[in-house]
């Protein structure tokens, strides 16, 4: 049953890893504006397809 030490150790390390990632995400300001990126994402596609049309 010594494997319990490893599993607990790994699970704690994974949990801390996610905690750090989450704190970094907050710090970067991802959660401050949750609306604009959703719109921006769609625009990039449109711009590309527009240019493609002109080249063709």
């Amino acid at each position: 049953m010594e494997v319990v030490y490893i599993t607990i150790g790994v699970s704690v390390i994974v949990a801390i890893f996610f905690l750090i990632i989450f704190i970094k995400a907050i710090k970067s300001g991802q959660y401050e504006d949750t609306y604009t990126p959703s719109v921006r994402m769609l625009f990039d596609d449109e711009l590309v397809s527009d240019k493609n049309k002109e080249h063709n």
Binding site: E32, D33, Y35, T36, V39, R40, F43, L47
Partner: peptide
């Protein structure tokens, strides 16, 4: 967000819609 096409001195422009 496409201001950079209208004025080439602009590098990026980023909108915060709620604000």
């Amino acid at each position: 967000e496409n201001l950079s096409k209208l004025n080439h001195g602009v590098i990026t422009s980023l909108v915060n819609f709620p604000k």
